[in-house]
Simulated scan of single mutants.
Amino acid sequence: MTNQLLPILEELTPNGGACVNEADFQQPDFQNVFYGANYPTLKAIKSKYDPLDIF
């Protein structure tokens, strides 16, 4: 799926993102695909409340 199907889907739907039910845990660009421009903010919040990276 990761190396064969995802590139085809990404070509058909540029900047299309992903839905939770179709997420691929091996997605190479998960930060952008799943969270978009919100990723840096979400990462900072997680670091603040989970400094030991337990979750």
Rank of each mutant, 00 (worst) to 15 (best):
L9H: 02
F30H: 06
P7M: 00
Y35N: 04
Y39I: 02
G16E: 02
T13V: 15
P40M: 00
V33T: 12
N3T: 15
Q26A: 11
Q4F: 12
P51H: 02
F30K: 03
F55C: 06
E10C: 04
K46Y: 01
M1L: 12
V33I: 14
P40Q: 10
P28W: 05
A44H: 01
L5I: 15
L5Y: 04
P7W: 01
N32K: 14
K48L: 08
P51Q: 04
L6Q: 06
Q26E: 11
V33L: 06
F55I: 15
Q31W: 09
L9P: 02
Y35F: 15
V33Y: 00
P40D: 04
V20Y: 10
G36P: 05
N32M: 10
I8S: 00
Q31V: 08
P40S: 11
F25I: 11
T13H: 04
M1I: 12
K46C: 02
L5E: 05
D24Q: 05
N38C: 12
K46N: 04
K43A: 12
V33K: 00
F25P: 03
E11G: 03
S47V: 08
P40R: 09
L5M: 07
Y49T: 02
T13R: 11
A23S: 10
I54H: 06
F25N: 07
D53W: 04
K46F: 03
N15C: 08
A44I: 07
F30C: 01
F34L: 14
G16D: 03
Y35G: 05
A23Q: 10
D24S: 07
V33F: 00
T2I: 06
P51R: 02
L5S: 06
A37Y: 14
T41S: 13
L52V: 07
I8W: 03
N15I: 05
V33N: 00
K43F: 09
A44R: 09
D24I: 12
I45E: 11
L42G: 08
L9G: 07
G17V: 06
E11T: 08
F25D: 10
N21M: 15
T13M: 14
T41A: 15
Q4E: 12
K46I: 00
P7E: 02
G17N: 03
N38S: 13
K46A: 05
L6H: 05
I45R: 14
G17F: 05
G36R: 06
D53F: 10
N38A: 15
K46V: 07
I8K: 04
D53Y: 09
N38T: 13
D24C: 11
L6P: 00
P28M: 09
D24P: 01
Y39L: 06
Q26K: 13
E11P: 00
T41C: 09
I45M: 14
S47L: 09
N21G: 13
T2M: 05
L12V: 13
A18W: 04
I8Q: 05
L12I: 12
D50Q: 07
L6W: 07
Q26M: 14
E10Y: 08
S47A: 14
V20W: 10
V33D: 01
P14V: 04
P40H: 05
M1N: 07
Q4C: 07
D53A: 10
P40F: 06
C19F: 15
F34T: 04
N3D: 12
L9N: 03
I45F: 12
D50A: 01
A37G: 13
I45S: 08
L42D: 01
